[in-house]
Amino acid sequence: MSFHILAEAKKIAKITLAGELDSLSAREFQREIEKVAAEGPDELVLFVENLTFISSAGLRVLIFAKQKIGTNLAIYIVQPQENIVDTLEKTGLQHSVNIVDKYM
């Protein structure tokens, strides 16, 4: 029997968000998502330790990412502050993203 091996590297897009994500800054975030969408990543990792505010405009960009890149995209939200987790939970978004303390 011959040996076969198939290796495939996962494509991971990493973005760090800090400060306040409102409808003004969400435009910038959306442009960034459009850029990474072109690469067709498998995973979108958002480092948000220093993100202190997110409005629905920011949440809509997350939904946009999923719609643009595809349903198989896994979104990781790394180290969100309590108020942000709260908003993700209130809007049911926590079911569609992975909230983690650390991205391995």
Binding site: S56, A57, I63, K66, Q67, T71, T87, K90, H95, S96
Partner: peptide, 14 residues
């Protein structure tokens, strides 16, 4: 799932 959600109304809900 995110891809089937209505996109509006979230802000007023919050």
């Amino acid at each position: 799932p995110l891809e089937e959600r209505p996109i509006g109304g979230m802000g007023i809900f919050l």
